[in-house]
């Protein structure tokens, strides 16, 4: 895997972790919780390399 791809996957993992962290920390806004999960979908799929 080329270096650029490794960097992109690392960015996906980082942003994904931040979204999960924010989802867990969110106490009140259901809208925000849902948005965190929706934004997480493509990142999870990419990390899992679902084909």
């Amino acid at each position: 895997m080329p270096l650029i791809m490794i960097i992109y996957y690392a960015i996906c993992v980082y942003i994904g972790a931040m979204l999960i962290w924010n989802f867990l920390r969110e106490k009140k806004s259901v809208n925000d919780m849902l948005l965190y999960l929706l934004i997480l979908i493509p990142l999870v799929l990419r990390i899992l390399r679902v084909k």
Binding site: F23, L24, V30, M33, L34, L37, L38, I41, V44, L45
Partner: peptide
């Protein structure tokens, strides 16, 4: 209530995926 909502949302999003 907070965790109930979180589990429901997680289940719904997982089902869609």
């Amino acid at each position: 209530r907070e965790w109930t909502i979180k589990f429901v949302l997680l289940a719904a999003v997982a089902a869609i995926i």
